[in-house]
Design a binder for these strands. Structure first.
Lengths: 337, 337
DNA sequence: ATAGTTTCCGTAAACGTTTACGGTCGATGA
DNA sequence: TCATCGACCGTAAACGTTTACGGAAACTAT
């Protein structure tokens, strides 16, 4: 089965009618529509994507841009797969397909996006790994491509975004530590220029200062956003003469290595050092149990999809979530801090 | 910047010449080519994907099909991210782009693939989560779409595949256990119909029988391929009157929960029960250190890409890796078994 | 019976490329 | 000088759809 032409010949009707029948247009005899549908099913005909989107000017695909490589964002497969699933649950209702636009770790993300967007690959884009200053925002704005970002940026072009509530994480973590009597408090700041790091650290600093405390520079640990990064932080802490007695972090991947490193140094979370972090399927089996923030990644995906649709022509009416959305999380009490 | 038309008007030459210049065809004046290139760069022109692939009959994109949802294949958290990176390192040399085709957990994978392949979305496909009998093979074969699968299947249509050496894992694990004097040996078999489970279990059984031992039915633990699944297996083992003294598994995600569950039951890996599994960035921080198989996921991705290219017209000459490739792994000795 | 209306379908243009083909112009060789 | 040739470029067709438009029946109302 090649194209609509063959299908039309097979049915001995015109391609116009076939197309109308397939696309559910009004003026086509129910009986012929039935015939067309059955023949298409039987012959396995599916409209060619290129021809279709060339004519329509839209592709029907939504792209979720992400960077590949092991150590980029500190988010792994399970994070994105869960989010994807939520996104798709919304998009599928509108016959939109989700594909992941994979930017290699060796390619510049801005150039990659420019390339794939200018060629008209997707009707809408979801951005992740949002940087503090993110040129991708301006690029998409310039091209008038609807998009939403998972994460805020200083580069604001009025597009919708959705972000985890890192400020609340900072506040709750810090106040929890302070209430428990900690004065030497440390935080882990993942490498890179992701905005979430800034948001978290800045708010931590504010809260501490509001309580007459200080976030000492040597207590801000920069780390690669993976297990090894956490391990290295633990080693660094262990080597100190004066150690922070509490550590807050936002990255769920780090914490495994952190635990291991502390253990090797004879320190036990919740006993020798307080830890508050973020939960993931992985962290639920740490011991001592992690005190950390949790959220439904699937719901997050749903939020992203709704936010994107709300700025896409043809769908604007149906969805009107808040334009900017700070996503709440719940603290799961463990024994680590 | 709309299309090639505008660019041609701007340069005051014909669209044919512009296209030829952009695509590096021979008969175009070096000087005009230079002009065109500069103008394209300046105006940010990129050829429209739909028009281009409609005319050319190929899209220039390779699709990596995977299923979304929280409990995917039980691969480690950065499994796909790492593999992607390897794949891209090869594809980028040929101006091919990699996208992930995301099949929602609520959609039938076969139907999904049918849909996206028939519409001509990608020039080549990489399959993952290969089932024991996998209809996707026949489908792609019928559509004459080049593809490779990560994982073998009984459904063989002569296409290339690449698979981890689960049989070697079985042999080495079993013989290691036997040499250490174990007689009650158990294995964990992830839920689902992924072929890797069958390959592993069957070979384990063979090896044991060759040594006059048996793989008892109650020592084959079926588990969800995630942390919780491992935890549940541990609980089940702990509840037994007679327990296996050694456990082999292929899934790197399970092991975290398994460790936790054993610990809660007062059992220590390597001491009370021997464990051999698979390594991932996560498992390196388990204690006691896991004895497990390791591999370079990036290289695996490179192998996949090369295997795919070897069956794609236009590239066949350049690559000729083994058509079927069993990927070796190395055993990292820990203290767990 | 005639005019008007509705229902359905065929025709053809358009979307943005790439590329086969032919044409122009200057250079080259006899 | 003329024919030949090569270098370069413009023209137009083609890829597979969707959709605006118009027209042919069939049906309704007068």
């Amino acid at each position: 089965m090649k194209g609509i032409r063959q299908l039309a010949d097979y049915l001995d009707i015109s391609i116009g009618t076939v197309s109308r029948a397939l696309n559910g247009k009004a003026d086509v005899n129910p009986q012929t529509r039935q015939r067309v549908l059955e023949a298409a099913e039987k012959l396995g005909y599916v409209a060619n994507q290129s021809g279709r989107s060339l004519r329509k000017g839209s592709t029907g695909v939504i792209g979720f841009m992400m960077q590949t490589g092991p150590d980029i964002t500190g988010q792994g497969d399970t994070f994105f797969m869960s989010v994807f699933d939520g996104v798709q649950s919304v998009l599928s209702r509108h016959d939109l397909d989700l594909v992941a636009l994979l930017c290699s770790s060796s390619e510049d993300p801005d150039a990659y996006l420019q390339r794939t967007v200018a060629r008209g690959f997707a009707d809408g884009i979801i951005l992740s790994a949002t940087r503090r200053n993110d040129a991708r925002f301006e690029l998409l704005d310039r091209h008038k491509i609807p998009f939403i970002s998972l994460g805020r940026s200083l580069t604001d072009v009025g597009q919708p975004w959705l972000d985890l509530d890192f400020e609340a994480m900072a506040e709750i973590s810090m106040e929890r530590f302070i209430r428990a009597g900690h004065t030497e408090i440390g935080v882990i700041w993942p490498h890179g220029d992701l905005n979430l790091g800034h948001l978290f650290i800045d708010r931590c600093r504010q809260v501490l200062e509001a309580h007459g405390l200080k976030l000492a520079e040597e207590n801000v640990f920069r780390a690669r956003p993976n297990e090894a990064g956490g391990y290295e932080v633990a080693k660094e802490i262990a080597a100190r003469r004066t150690r922070p007695s509490a550590i807050a972090l936002v990255n769920e991947t780090l914490v495994t290595g952190l635990y291991k490193g502390l253990e090797e140094a004879g320190m036990s979370p919740g006993k020798d050092i307080a830890i508050v972090g973020r939960h993931s399927p992985h962290t639920q089996f740490l011991s001592p149990a992690l005190t950390g923030f949790n959220l439904s990644l699937r719901d997050l995906g749903i939020g992203l999809a709704e936010g994107l649709l709300s700025v896409m022509p043809n769908y604007e009416g149906a969805y009107a979530p808040p334009h900017h959305r700070v996503w709440p999380m719940t603290l799961l009490e463990g024994s680590s801090g």
